[in-house]
Amino acid sequence: MVAAAVLERPKVEMPQDHQKEIASRIEDWQQRISDLYAHIAECAEKHSELWLSENMTAKLFEKPMHDAGLEPVMLPVLNVGRGKGLIVSFQPIGLWVLGANGRMDILTHNGAYELIDEAEVGQPPNWQVFAPGSWEAKPFDHEVVERLLS
């Protein structure tokens, strides 16, 4: 349980409820990322030549965690490749994001997509994606995933 682990070493005096709230937000973010990766894996199933790997991690450590005396949490990165080549990498960037309820970057050889959750805190995710160089959000639907995996 990551949430329990991060509560072990508080740096500053914080109300326990506040720490729990922050830890709960982190757990929710981990769940949203896990569900997103499961969706990508499902879409990748019909492309037998693709491999998926979660061997790399990205660090989550933001101001609310710091202020609550919580330790950094490592989140899985999802890499998808074909043969020896990497074709796309899903990178968790942040949770307490100005303008969104979480941000992932999707790295490709054609630039980075910005993937954000537009949903309110505690609501089911509403993933929206910005293509490289674009300022217009589009739903992160099956068509986008297929394009990324092709």
Binding site: K63, L95, G99, R103
Partner: peptide, 23 residues
């Protein structure tokens, strides 16, 4: 956020630029 970034710290402060810049 401007003030918080200005004060710095050893933690990340993330912005969705694709959302915030057009706003």
């Amino acid at each position: 956020k401007r003030n918080s970034i200005g004060h710095g710290g050893n933690f990340n402060q993330v912005i969705s630029m694709r959302v915030v810049v057009p706003q």
